[in-house]
Each structure stands twice: as C-alpha cells, then as structure tokens.
C-alpha cells in the first residue's frame, strides 16, 4: 500500500517538524537548567523573531543582516523580560511563576498583534532552488537550512557550556548555587544569560521555519506546546534528551499521520505522552 518513497517522505516531514520542536525544546531547557523555570512565553519569542525578520527584509536589509538583527532583538527582549518581570518574583511559588510566564506570553502576543496586525506574513526561503528529489521523495531546501541551523546551534551550545569559563560557571549554577557564586558568577547573572540564550534560540527556530509557515501574531502557541511536550519526554534538564525527544516527536507524528490515522494523530501522540509520563515520571532521558 505504502511504498518505500513514502516512508522516506514521512521521515522528511517528521524531520522538519522535529527540528523545530527540538530547537524550541532546547531553548526551554536552557532556561530551566539555570532558573528551574519553564517559560510559557517561548512561543512568542519564536513569533517575534520571525516577524521581526519579515519586517527587516521587507525594509530592504540583506537576509544575513536581518537574520542577526532579529536574533539580537529577541535576545535583548528576553533579557529585559527576565530582569524586569521574572526577577522580582523569583522566590514566589512555581504556580506564580508559571502564570507569570503566561502573562508575559499574553502581553507579547498582544504587542505583536498591534505591531504586525492580524494578517499572516511570508518570509522568502533562505535560498532559492527547486525541491530536491531523494529516493523518490522530495526535500525542500529550507528543510536543509533548518537542520543545519539546529546542528550549528547545538554545537554552539556545547562549546559554550563545556568549553567557556562563563558557560561552565553557568552549568555549575544549575547544579550548585553556592559553588557557582564561588566561581564568580551570581545566580542572577546566570539566569539573565540563560534567558538571553533561550529567547535567542526560540527566535531562531521561528525564523528558520517561517518560510515554510505563514506567521502571524498567534502562531507561537502550537510550537510552545510541542516544545513543552518534547522537554517532558526528554527530561527537563537534558539538552540531548530534549533534542532527541523533539525529533522523535516530529517523526512519530509524521508516521502516525501517514500510517495510522491523521484524524486521531493528536489523540495518539498525547496518549503516548501520558503513558511515557506515567511510567517514566521524569522523562525518557531524565535523571532520577
């Protein structure tokens, strides 16, 4: 019934969504590792990054410059949000913090609505070119961009957290607050940096997939939910786990849609998720 080329096509489809989920998941994990907080406004950074780039490109800026500028805008925005809104209530309960990030998400979405209006915006692909035929299936060039961006981001994260003094200190911060302050980084500064990283990567994810989607102010809700699912499967504090889980989620979705039922694919995915959570309460790759 379904031949091999379709299995390949489903795989590409899963890889596309999966890379996007993985990037969002990574941005959530970085913030979580340092400040033990999942930011529900991550989807808004995703949207703001993409829409900022649409605007900058339409103003005539070259793609690469618009790309860098949009990341900067989101990074600064993320840092500002952390300093002004999260820091003042960081000692409140986890419920308060969750609702605070929801409030931030509402505010940013509301602001995006006023800035970019209700209509959808299109970003042209990073490189022009026809879809590439592979084993009877087709691959869109932008998907290669998404995958390369994901790989580059992961390498950058690895270098930062494993090789630089600042990154190592930040990691220490996540594990032992006192030890971190001895290494010369305050938890405050570490949290700020983590938010900057997180919002930057969130924006990057949005910009990378924008050419495949039609972006508007409310487009961030779905990626946020999917990213959250990925970190729940992968374990909240595991970067590797969240990447694997993101890709896995995308692939499972694609094969469920392709091979089982597109009508009940979400029911199946969410049910699987609940089973994973119940039998492996801290995620497939989580510790303890």
């Amino acid at each position: 019934m379904t031949d091999f080329s379709h299995i390949v096509q489903f795989f590409f489809s899963g890889l596309t969504s999966g890379s996007m989920y993985a990037l969002i998941a990574v941005s959530l994990v970085i913030v979580y590792k340092v400040s033990l907080l999942i930011c529900f406004a991550q989807g808004e950074f995703f949207v703001i990054g993409a829409l900022a780039m649409v605007t900058l490109v339409s103003k005539g800026l070259p793609m690469p410059l618009a790309f860098v500028l949009s990341i900067l805008i989101s990074t600064v925005l993320g840092a500002l949000v952390q300093r002004m809104l999260i820091k003042p209530i960081q000692n409140a309960g986890i419920g308060n913090l969750i609702v605070m990030t929801i409030a931030i998400s509402l505010t940013l979405r509301g602001a995006a609505l006023l800035v970019w209006g209700k209509e959808s915006h299109i970003l042209k692909p990073f490189s022009s070119g026809a879809p590439i035929p592979v084993l009877g299936a087709t691959l869109q060039p932008q998907v290669l961009w998404i995958i390369s961006i994901t790989i580059v981001v992961l390498i950058m994260i690895w270098i930062f957290f494993e090789k630089t003094k600042l990154g190592i200190a930040m990691r220490a911060c996540a594990e032992n607050r006192l030890g971190a302050s001895l290494m010369g980084i305050s938890t405050d500064k570490a949290a700020l940096l983590a938010w900057a990283w997180g919002s930057g990567i969130g924006a990057l994810a949005g910009m990378a997939v924008a050419p495949l989607l039609f972006m508007q102010y409310g487009s961030g809700v779905m990626p946020m939910v999917k990213g959250f699912i990925a970190v729940s499967i992968g374990g909240l504090s595991s970067i590797v786990g969240s990447v694997v889980a993101g890709l896995l989620l995308g692939t499972v979705e694609a094969y469920t849609i392709g091979l089982i039922s597109s009508k009940f694919s979400d029911t199946i995915v969410f049910s699987l998720l609940m089973v994973v959570l119940i039998f492996k309460p801290s995620g497939l790759f989580g510790k303890g």
Binding site: I38, F228, S232, F270, L277, P281
Partner: peptide
C-alpha cells in the same frame, strides 16, 4: 498515576489530557 507526577510533568500530563 497522574498526581504522582511533580510540577512541570504534572502540568504537561494535565495539558495532554485536555488535548486528548
């Protein structure tokens, strides 16, 4: 089974049930 989960995992499980 669900309430044995903690914090964000509990949040996720409840959200998932809503979606289901």
């Amino acid at each position: 089974p669900v309430l044995a989960l903690k914090e964000y995992y509990l949040a996720m499980a409840t959200l998932a049930f809503n979606e289901i």
